[in-house]
Write a protein that binds this DNA or RNA. Structure first.
Length: 230
DNA sequence: TCATTAATCGCAC
DNA sequence: GTGCGATTAATGA
């Protein structure tokens, strides 16, 4: 983790909107305005309620985006990995952030101020289009989530949460590439850590997954996929 | 090593 | 099936 400035030229995140539009962004000189921020594990880089100050891209690492709920329960909105955008909701409203974002492992972030980013959107049409597409996808996911919360039971929501994390971060030898706590799964699936513990140990008994320390190994993906009606 | 936090279990409702 | 407290395991300062 000895990178002074995240370099877009050598960046391997092909899904990053800046990387995709690098030619235009670079030729207009916007890369000069990019800042690199290093965020250690469990440090927050966006605080709910603080004024919007720009947009983040994950260069290398993982983060969770969540909002404070009632009784100290958080609602995890999404996880973000390499190339993902964080803080986009605040961009066009210019109010304060409605979410917090915290690194779940040591993370390198690229940051653009709102002013610079809005200028970029005005001058690089493709970037605007890509961002619009991204907003649409997020809205779709958000709508799906509402449906899932009302129609799925706890077990299904926990499995769905695992599937989401796997889709986002993948697996290594079956192990999910994210050290996620029961609490975090609960906050994502809208339940309690007790429930998550119960569901996971049940799945463990049923040999659909394998629990090793804090890591979760998927044993029978086929059976898992058969369950939630997503 | 000690202190704090997370995970699990048992029990009550 | 769900929530709470106690016990145990794991983490990090």
């Amino acid at each position: 983790m000895n990178i002074k400035k995240a370099n877009c030229e050598t960046c391997i995140n092909q899904n990053c909107l800046i990387k995709i539009n690098l030619k235009s962004v670079k030729s207009l000189g916007y890369l000069e305005s990019k800042r690199t921020i290093i965020c250690r594990k469990s440090q927050s880089f966006i605080l709910e309620g603080s004024p919007v100050h720009g947009l983040f891209f994950i260069y290398d690492g993982k983060a969770k985006v969540y909002s404070r709920g009632i009784q100290g329960r958080d609602q995890i909105i999404r996880f973000a990995g390499n190339g993902d955008i964080v803080g986009h909701r605040g961009l066009l409203t210019f109010e304060s952030y409605r979410i917090s974002a915290t690194a779940v492992e040591d993370t390198i972030l690229c940051h653009f101020s709102s002013e610079v980013l809005l200028e970029m959107l005005h001058s690089v049409a493709n970037l605007s289009f890509d961002l619009m597409k991204f907003y649409a996808e997020e809205l779709q996911r958000s709508e799906d989530k509402v449906r899932k919360f009302s129609q799925m039971d706890v077990r299904e929501r926990v499995i769905d949460a695992l599937m989401y994390i796997i889709k986002k971060f993948g697996t290594t030898k079956g192990f999910i590439n994210l050290k996620v706590s029961r609490r975090e799964i609960a906050d994502f699936a809208g339940t309690t850590e007790d429930q998550v513990t119960r569901v996971l140990s049940k799945l463990n008994q049923e040999k659909l997954i394998h629990l090793e320390k804090k890591l979760i190994q998927i044993v029978n993906m086929k059976m898992l996929l058969n369950e939630p009606s997503s």
